[in-house]
Amino acid sequence: METVQTSRLFFRRKPVSVDALAPSHRGEARTAFVFLLPWLLGLIFLTTLPMAGSFVLSFSHYDLLSPPQWIGLENYERLLAHDPRYLKSLEVTTTYVLVSVPLSIAMALVIAVALSQQTPTANLFRGIFYLPSLLGGSVAVGVLWRQIFGGNGLVNMMLGGLGFQTTSWIGDPRYALWILIILHIWQFGAPMVIFLAGVRQIPKEIVDASIMDGASPVQRFFRITLPLLSPLILFNLVMQTINAFQAFVPAFVISDGTGGPIDSTLFYTLYLYVEGFRNFRMGYAMAMAWVLLAIIAVFTAISFYASRFWVHYES
């Protein structure tokens, strides 16, 4: 409450120029400004201006070689009404997000609860389960995944050895996206670490009270642990969703940058890359980027609005 009041007061104050400050404070303010300058320059020249530029260019035809031509809403119109590949990329990405995010969060939660017990091997397993998250986004793991699920990969060797019929999992449009979904779920380490910290924050006496009240381990998980972790579930849900919407490397590596087979792994950002850097339709790619930003913003807003019905805050 105090912070809110303080910040309100802060925002109500009229801006004070450096010259209006007492001499001792003036030097302090200038020093602060010098230290803030690198970040401020980065914010202005590397973030704000490029974003503003991309927004303007999203209303243009721009191929990097000739000057941009203003075409109004044509890029946006084409996106939403005349580009089946765009709609396909949207469908692939939405499926990827809707399946992989809940499953990776569920996996992270279950493993975190299991590893929250203080056993001699708990730390070792925490490290092992976190490892894929350190490697998961890298090109190397994409290549490794390709080797595992390719026609002559490890999975097929095992299945063949057991007498099952084999297929190229990443070459078959029915399975390729699911291989990427499995790869995403495999990288549950980061949300797991957050959940682990949350589980260990649950007061022991609350758990003891629920034991005295007769709750079984499963009832304790669903009625006590899960509601008390709901703020962290929301956090992980939002962060994981934003990351999943922007997933690029796995699809790029596994499909050789094509989004194939038959566009089955054509992620939104991969299609954006193809349009921008292969087909040199920069204006169109920028329009796609702004639509993606809008989609993520809407999703985040919905998540926060819905959180009032299922997220329990301590204070």
């Binding site: 007061p203 609350i206 509601p227 301590e314």
Partner: peptide, 11 residues
């Protein structure tokens, strides 16, 4: 049992 920290379910 009644606990020192009350141990009420906050949600």
């Amino acid at each position: 049992m009644v606990f020192q920290s009350y141990a009420l379910y906050p949600h």
